[in-house]
Design a protein around this nucleic acid. Sequence first.
DNA 1: AGGATTATTTACCGTGTAGTATAAATGTAA
DNA 2: TTACATTTATACTACACGGTAAATAATCCT
Lengths: 211, 211
Amino acid sequence: MPSVKSFASCTPCIGRPRAFDIDAALEKALEVFWRKGYDGTSLTDLTDAMGINKPSLYSAFGNKEQLFLKAIELYESRPCAFFLPALEKPTAYQVAEHMLYGAAMNMTDTNHPQGCVIVHGALSCSEAASTVKEALLSRRVEGEQKLRERFKQAKAEGDLPAHVDPDVLARYLGTVLQGMAIQANNGASTDDLRQVAAMTLQSFPRNNQIA
Amino acid sequence: MPSVKSFASCTPCIGRPRAFDIDAALEKALEVFWRKGYDGTSLTDLTDAMGINKPSLYSAFGNKEQLFLKAIELYESRPCAFFLPALEKPTAYQVAEHMLYGAAMNMTDTNHPQGCVIVHGALSCSEAASTVKEALLSRRVEGEQKLRERFKQAKAEGDLPAHVDPDVLARYLGTVLQGMAIQANNGASTDDLRQVAAMTLQSFPRNNQIA
DNA sequence: AGGATTATTTACCGTGTAGTATAAATGTAA
DNA sequence: TTACATTTATACTACACGGTAAATAATCCT
């Protein structure tokens, strides 16, 4: 996960300089998409939040769809993102643990909208914006794929009992995480989601567990 | 749960008779909302699917918002609904079991759109339609409330160990069900969701279980 | 200073939206 | 047959949407 500085076109050295911070504007755009979904966000919502005009938005980011995709990139590479760091924990149980508690913390953080922009965006996305829909779907599929591979590796390392199915484990964890996104969007508290995390971990196999 | 025949205004005995079946039209409307969400469904989508014109729709159902609310009523009272019947199972474990497997079956049933219209509708609903948003939110809150009460009753009956918290159980189950709705909407199969249901039940306390 | 290049502002375009006014069509009741 | 009540179809309104053309402003390079 490289620390990318800017997700948009690099600033040229010639011509009138851009009057706004392109990364700060993208942060604002992400915040709006996060709160209102893709279709629910209008260009007026975006330009108001970003403090720029429509032509500036179009010249800097292409169009609404490309702006959204860039916002999603930013979302996944944020320092507070919990998914990728959790994958690197030493045991499968710890992977699940960090992912669940990280989600409980992140999805209810009041410094940004509640829930998950990927889950919210996908459901509030008409079939007219099929590119966006598919991009978001593939993100979630990729996420579960990474979980599967991580658990497969854990099994190979003897970190998980031989009888467990990494596919099922990954799907179960993915389902709970997506459910937590809905709960957070509904106003659930951090502790509410922590309790869900604890329950979820009860059915998660550890090494040497009879299960 | 009475077997209501019609969710719309009763047919008068005088004047030009209505040329369409109002309940069949409502079924069609539900199907569209289910597939496309609230904001994602246009009046043209609705009138096309229902086979009627806009003025007929407005005179029969009021407006888009009221039509949606009536469609949700229909959704919850359908014969294939799984939530309320599951609540009446004799033990808490069986309640959870029937609800999870019922959801796995229902949400992937190819006779209608995948997932849950309440989850999908709420997320694809701009703040302009705050009435709809709140109505859907209260449905989910009520659902979890019913689960809580059912598990509280189970505890009083000695059907659940003394140390379990009905609130946590209800929230956990609700979270998984909502996650399953997302998974189904993403194209998960019935078996995929059945596996999730089985995993979920592993952390669900039974009577006389050490847990 | 004077192009060249890029960003900003303002005003606009075509389309799709939810919702409605109006009048014709179709039935019942007297 | 006539009066009445209601639904139908057509056409329309006002507005918000995503996106853009044209002119102006600000900077760099020569």
